[in-house]
């Protein structure tokens, strides 16, 4: 019975991986820009499932809430306000940009997978503290990482104010 549950969990894991792969492929290869954002959302959902397998329910929820709920909506808003619906990228033409991208990403993938991941042996930590509960995470955020926590809120505030100023300034005067 236990092995059966393990098998089901592995099947779901592979499904999350496939969701990530298909979504990211759609995000970079879609012809219409809105489909690209849709692919990004699918890919983010797959990564959220992987976070669940890595032991953090909280980050799964945050991934869905922040990335799929906020960032994707901002992107859709940007498309709707500023763009024509069709991206005029010709898929069949093997342009210089595509060749450049293929070479760059291929070399990077080869170096990272074969040289970096393949030749390294990872060692376990000698002793571990804490657990994956939200309680421990909240205590760490408010005790050890308090400064970073406050700074990220300041960064978010500045980003919001800056975004408002950038988006509404310069409407009247022609520079």
């Amino acid at each position: 019975m236990n092995a059966y549950y393990q098998f089901v969990a592995e099947v779901f894991f592979v499904m999350f991986i496939l969701l990530t792969l298909i979504g990211s492929w759609l995000a970079v290869n879609a012809r219409i820009l809105m489909h690209s954002v849709l692919g990004l959302a699918v890919s983010l959902l797959g990564v959220a499932g992987l976070y669940f397998y890595l032991g953090s329910m909280f980050l799964t929820m945050m991934q869905i809430l922040i990335y799929m709920g906020a960032v994707c909506i901002v992107l859709v808003f940007g498309i709707m306000v500023g763009y024509t619906p069709n991206e005029s990228a010709d898929k069949h033409e093997l342009s210089r940009n595509m060749m450049l991208g293929l070479v760059t990403s291929g070399v990077a993938a080869f170096l990272l997978i074969v040289v970096a991941i393949g030749k390294t042996t990872w060692t376990q930590a000698v002793q571990t503290t804490g657990n994956f509960s939200i309680e421990w995470l909240g205590k760490s955020l408010l005790l050890e990482y308090c400064l970073a926590f406050e700074l990220i809120s300041v960064v978010l505030l500045i980003a919001i104010v800056g975004a408002i100023i950038l988006a509404r300034g310069g409407r009247e005067e022609e520079i």
Binding site: V28, S43, G101, T104, S105, L112
Partner: peptide
């Protein structure tokens, strides 16, 4: 690694 390289590829390939 796959997410990283497909992101780089998309950054170069996309025209918007």
């Amino acid at each position: 690694v796959f997410l990283l390289v497909i992101g780089i590829y998309g950054m170069i390939r996309h025209k918007t």
